[in-house]
Design a protein around this nucleic acid. Structure first.
Lengths: 336, 336
DNA sequence: CTGAAAGCGCTAACAC
DNA sequence: GTGTTAGCGCTTTCAG
């Protein structure tokens, strides 16, 4: 709890100037080996740790990266952030998190970054950006990378969600389903399309192509979450002609659908089939059939993209991710 | 991407000195109302945002709080952090996250905080601290609060895990079980007891008291995780005289146990009963019987504790949390 | 009530 | 090679 040693204390003890100490600190060339040693020794003696507040001010860099994402409602996002942490953890950057559950709050978070000396770069995960938000970011000139956001204007990594939807449709079709339904997220952002919307797109197109187009009443959307998805599924199940299979835009929503089925006294997959999307850890635990996407790897890729931008390595292309596939487990069977 | 306006630009435009602008910025008293207005107008005009790097240096405060926790392997921790975010989000502090999966890494994270100007305070979640780590923290004089860590030496909020274990035992006993088993975490830290250990303590004591002491071979521990728990459960199920019920120290581990039971062809609760701990969101989704603890609220409480310490509000006592109770669902039944 | 000036602790350009 | 010094942008005495 004593006053921490400063650079000039080190300089004094080592009998050099602060400039030299700074050079040692930053591994700059042009310091004699023995001087360097002497300075190092002095730092150790004093237990010296540079103040990064001062360093920030003087460098104009913060050594921290901001992550804007809906952490708490989306386990898949946690997994993506885990990937981000994998690569950022090895760098010199800290991660500051801004939790955001709606696009509106995202603007707020973006504003907190309004000043470039708050973070050196921003990672936006699973949040479609409005044009305003996007231009605001660009105006600030702060490097950004998007994860699970399909926006061509910025470096981004995203899956082919349309394909994912197609895969889900094919899997259901193969099992013999013709009347299927979709449970996904509300389209809350007119500017960017959510992954949920793209999954529906591929799903609907594939069903249509197979001559079994999705009925309008079989498309249900609501705020992301297990409970809501359960409610939506219940509506579906209560239909005069209920679907024989339901595609949920995320595993969390699939869990809600499963719950609704159980409450409705329907066996899965005997009474109704269910397929999810993401393949989060718990999906395997309960045998949910789902479209697997490389969550953690997407975070890694996004982080690398941002780090590359920060290092000025030119515009690195979005790296290829492992491809999507259906993890067939126990919740899809033949129609009743 | 233009150079952001500085305090002196504002001062110039408003026709005042930088000192006055600073005063307006900080809502300090002693500025004439009209001057204040004029300065405000100038700030708006310029779209001025103070540099917090500079502010930090000059204030000696960082306005950020560090959170050290095993985020990615423990959904329960995510929920606690959510509580932290609830209260910190409303304050002026940012949250910087340090993911840590083992006690060893915790020391590392702590070291990153070695200098007080990195964060103003630290929240440690679900990680027992060694004496070294603890004294290191104290030496730095940086305020700390612990969540789900039972260490009397620091402000902390924790549940009565011993009681939780007791509740689990009683629930199983009430259902008629006499030969029960435990699956929990490795004791990796000889200095602090993990919640897992305390849960076992209460569990074992209650069983013993009921005249049905836990057999040594019925206590299995391993690194936290679903997979490992599944393996441990498998061992249990393969015992000559397998337990009729298993208490998992966390829901994640309970999922592993459930999985192992399914693989062993055992019905739950027909073939074996399972009870977990935490009551994370997904527990309800799959009907897991578990000991519910107030996760999110514990995070909130911890954050409040830290904020109070930061505000110098003296030593606030750990707030009372909602009590533990068994959420009885579908995984506990009579012994086979 | 307000302006001027001295730091906060470090980096980097510039001399020696 | 190494010391000196001028900032980085703000806060906060200290005068006036």
């Amino acid at each position: 709890m004593v006053r921490p040693p400063h650079i000039r204390d080190v300089a004094a003890l080592a009998g050099v100037g602060v400039g030299t100490v700074s050079r040692v600190l930053n591994d700059s060339a042009g310091v004699a080996d023995d001087t360097r040693e002497r300075v190092r020794a002095a730092m150790d003696d004093l237990g010296y740790r540079p103040s990064n507040a001062a360093r920030r001010l003087s460098l104009g860099r913060t050594q921290t990266l901001g992550v804007i994402a809906p952490f708490f409602t989306h386990p898949s996002v946690v997994e993506r952030v885990r990937g981000i942490d994998d690569v950022v953890g090895d760098s010199a950057y800290d991660l500051v998190l801004f939790n955001v559950e709606t696009s509106g709050q995202a603007e707020d978070a973006l504003r907190r970054f309004a000043r470039a000396d708050r973070v050196d770069g921003v990672l936006v995960v699973s949040l479609p950006l409005s044009d305003d938000e996007l231009t605001a970011l660009q105006d600030q000139g702060i490097p950004v990378a998007l994860v699970d956001v399909d926006d061509e204007r910025l470096p981004h990594v995203s899956n082919d969600d349309v394909l994912g939807g197609t895969l889900a449709a094919r899997h259901l079709l193969d099992a013999g389903h013709r009347r299927v339904a979709f449970v996904g997220d509300t389209v809350e952002n007119p500017f960017g399309f959510t992954s949920s919307a793209r999954r529906l797109e591929g799903f609907a197109a594939a069903m249509e192509e197979a001559g079994a187009p999705l009925a309008p009443e079989c498309i249900r959307r609501g705020p992301h979450g297990r409970e809501v998805a359960g409610l939506l599924a219940r509506e579906l199940l209560d239909l005069g002609e209920p679907p024989t299979a339901i595609f949920a835009a995320s595993d969390v929503q699939a869990f809600g659908v499963l719950d609704a089925a159980a409450r409705a006294g329907l066996d899965v997959p005997g009474g109704v089939s269910v397929i999810g999307f993401d393949d989060i850890d718990l999906a395997g635990a309960i045998g949910l059939t789902t479209v697997r996407q490389p969550l953690r790897e997407s975070g890694r890729a996004g982080a690398r993209l941002l780090l590359a931008a920060l290092a000025g390595d030119g515009h690195e292309d979005a790296p290829a991710l492992p491809e999507l596939l259906v993890a067939a487990r126990r919740t899809v069977g033949a129609p009743p």
